[in-house]
Design a protein around this nucleic acid. Structure first.
Lengths: 232, 232
DNA sequence: ATCCGGTACCGTCAAGCTGACGAGAACATT
DNA sequence: AATGTTCTCGTCAGCTTGACGGTACCGGAT
């Protein structure tokens, strides 16, 4: 054990799809470093607290969002020596995927406002290295839609195939063929469980409602077309 | 900034393929916590040092292995409150893939021996939570062989298709058909660059030698058959 | 020199999946 | 009732994969 100690924080890239756009939950900082800029929700890990616990706790206290059954996973850690002007801070980025929730309540955060949804495409500048963390989170989400059933994490408990397809459209920016998309997701065993009910969006023929099934992997994966060489 | 500070370490899962077996580089601890047990190479991050720099530095000082052109990537961070009896330590696991190198030199490590290659299948117990980190690293490597050209990272600069296929066999535990495997890797543009030379392993017809190409992704991916539902 | 085991490399073929449509069924609105 | 919209069922060609036969090339034994 040496004397060079770190403060350890967790930051969250909370993604959702609202009105066909991929959105991220951002806070506006009111405290000193990067005051007035937007930042990811997050905070310091407390003694005897594990990383995932810290992430869910910070999300609740800062935005009121409860990660109950929603999906959270660790992204990566960031520890560039000068990433925080206050000192040596390592942050563990996390990725959360949630359905289209109502605007988060004005939180009781000490150094930031309550938080709001921002379309990812319009985010230009963030505090610290949060832009990098956001980019990594978005890329992770895009990649995971290819080979997992994780798109359903963006949907409410009951959803139609159209809603699921609109998730892919928003996250990938592509427009898969509805008929082929339907064939793919329904032919994957355990992806969708039919509920028997139907849902009408107001116009057009109502679609069947489904629930998330036990399957997590997609074999073979669903490939987005413009999939160039990614990072290793 | 709070008073709850962490020591931050990096640990490395260094994998290679030796004699058809997937092997990991392990040290035997000579210092107090977990003395006598095997552990992953690693150490504490120094002030003004980034994570990847710390990982490569520790690997050189502990095992003499130089991560020059080899592949290193971050795996995940582990920070369970009781994972280190000495206190609060967060470790950032890293994954390194190297060719079949000679046995590492007896290192000058302060609290462990030089290190040696151990077949992953025979590793039963490790210090700290290193068994979990190793498992995560192996799973990451297995998954990445599916959709990237990373298998070539296990090979020397010039290699034959057979050598590359044996990487897949060792990492996946499967035996893909040599003809279909050859068709797949040669039909992926930018995966293999022919050198013109040939190489004979002593018996059988010599095979053509290749070098790693600029491609990093495999589209469509190469699926291992027994690919059940993985973790999300 | 010839044979033989082993490996590399050339094909073929059916089965499965995907992309690109056509067409009908079930709604709301006009 | 007509129309537009959306869901759902089919069809069909093209590509990729898995399985496998056949041939070329090597070292070593006969």
């Amino acid at each position: 054990m040496r004397g060079n100690l770190f403060a350890v924080a967790v930051d969250l890239v909370v993604l959702t799809v609202r009105d066909g756009e991929l959105c991220v939950l951002l806070l506006e900082r009111t405290a000193k470093p990067f005051e007035g800029e937007f930042a990811l929700p997050g905070g310091f890990v407390q003694p005897k607290e594990d990383l995932l616990d810290a992430a869910t706790r910070e999300l609740v206290t800062e935005t009121g969002l409860v990660i109950g059954t929603h999906h959270v996973e660790q992204l990566a850690s960031y520890a560039a020596p000068d990433r925080d002007p206050r000192g040596r801070v390592l942050t563990v980025g996390h990725l959360a995927l949630v359905p289209d929730l109502p605007e988060p309540e004005a939180g009781a955060g000490a150094d930031s406002t309550g938080g709001a949804w921002h379309p990812v495409a319009k985010v230009d500048q963030l505090a610290f290295d949060h832009a990098r963390i956001l980019a990594d989170g978005v890329e992770r989400a895009r990649a995971k839609l290819e080979y997992t059933t994780l798109a359903a994490a963006f949907c409410p408990p009951d959803f139609t195939i159209s809603q699921l397809r609109r998730i892919y459209e928003a996250v990938w920016g592509t427009t898969p063929d509805p008929r082929n998309f339907s064939r793919k997701v329904t032919s994957t065993p355990g992806f969708l469980l039919p509920t028997g009910a139907k849902f009408s969006s107001g116009r057009g023929r109502p679609g069947q409602l489904f629930r998330r099934g036990p399957a997590t992997a997609l074999h073979p994966p669903m490939l987005r077309d413009g999939d160039s060489d990614g990072d290793l």
